[in-house]
């Protein structure tokens, strides 16, 4: 079966299955978070899994999407347009910043994005007249309920956001799989194996890296816009360093090479804090340990490791 179609069917089935078994609005809200995180982490998969680059400031792009969606409607811009502008802005910033950095070794992107993320977070926390400062701000505007009312469905707010974010996650995953199997995606994988070998094959390495970085920034920004709309409230912490780390950890844990890794990582690290009440106290230690241990024990992540295990058993 075509890999994009397979991805679509599996993820769509999971979205529907969630809706069938969830007993209350609370579950829908957690499910919504899982899909938003899956979408953001799919962007990390394009960057980390396909090309092998680490960004430590993706929460910054996430926050640009979220805050554009929160701020622009008060200047008369409709929510949907605001979200699109936010995503475009994040992509533009990534393209401008990425190009000179990506000519250099992979360390430089990690360092520069670490700084960029902190800068964005700083602006969001200090410019209180625009962003509400550390207390955050409410997000006015679109509710997904209205969308479903148009077609005569009367859903609860939490349910309707679950469907909208699920749809975005599925579409994002299909797009990423298609990108990965296109000639351009194969060029990215060649770069992953060796910059020098790829460029000797005629691939413009800096340009391909910069495009992957831009695309992954847009993924993060769209996820941020969805979070702003679904939550109705955002704080600068969506752009904080720990949120960047969380995204990378999700990708690393699930397996950065595939969108299913993104889903599994997002699912585990979103659900865990809900189940484990002490998670908040040990959040740093857990995330840190997950990163180190995954890299040492199963470098490709959980999904590839489980697939290998299943194959070995069948033999």
């Amino acid at each position: 079966m075509n890999p994009a179609l397979r991805t679509f069917l599996i993820l769509a089935a999971l979205v529907v299955a969630g809706a069938l078994i969830f007993p209350s609005s609370y579950y829908y809200r957690v499910g919504t978070l899982v899909w938003i995180n899956t979408l953001a982490v799919t962007g990390i998969v394009v960057l980390l899994g396909y090309v092998g680059l680490v960004s430590l400031g993706h929460a910054g792009f996430f926050a640009i999407g979220a805050y554009a969606t929160a701020i622009l409607p008060s200047y008369g811009v409709p929510s949907v347009l605001a979200a699109i502008l936010g995503a475009a802005g994040a992509g533009l910033l990534a393209a401008i910043v990425g190009r000179p950095i990506l000519r250099l070794s992979g360390y430089y992107l990690a360092i520069a994005t670490l700084g960029l993320g902190m800068l964005i977070w700083m602006v969001l926390s200090k410019e209180a007249w625009l962003t509400g400062g550390p207390d955050g701000m409410t997000v006015m505007g679109a509710n997904a309920r209205d969308l479903f009312k148009l077609v005569g469905l009367n859903l609860r707010s939490a349910e309707s956001w679950y469907w909208v974010t699920g749809t975005f996650a599925v579409l994002g995953a299909v797009l990423a799989v298609n990108l990965g199997n296109s000639p351009w995606g194969r060029a990215l994988r060649a770069i992953h194996d060796s910059d020098v070998a790829a460029s000797s094959l005629g691939i413009d390495v800096a340009k391909a890296k910069s495009m992957a970085f831009t695309i992954s920034a847009v993924y993060a920004a769209v996820a941020g816009a969805l979070l702003a709309l679904a939550n109705g409230y955002i704080t600068p912490e969506v752009g904080g360093f720990m949120h960047s780390v969380e995204m990378v950890t999700m990708a690393v844990l699930g397996g950065a090479a595939s969108v299913f890794g993104a889903l599994v990582g997002a699912l585990i690290l979103t659900a865990l804090p809900q189940v484990l009440t002490v998670f908040a106290d040990y959040e740093h230690m857990i995330l840190g340990a997950v990163m180190v241990l995954t890299m040492i024990l199963m470098r490709r992540g959980l999904v590839p490791a489980l697939v290998d295990l299943a194959k070995r058993r069948r033999k």
Binding site: L48, M285, L287, I296
Partner: peptide
């Protein structure tokens, strides 16, 4: 390990130490 893994390891270690 490839460079990208080493970045993730030292970042993970830094977060772990912060929590500790």
């Amino acid at each position: 390990a490839p460079l990208v893994s080493l970045i993730i390891i030292t970042i993970g270690a830094s977060i772990f130490l912060r929590g500790a």
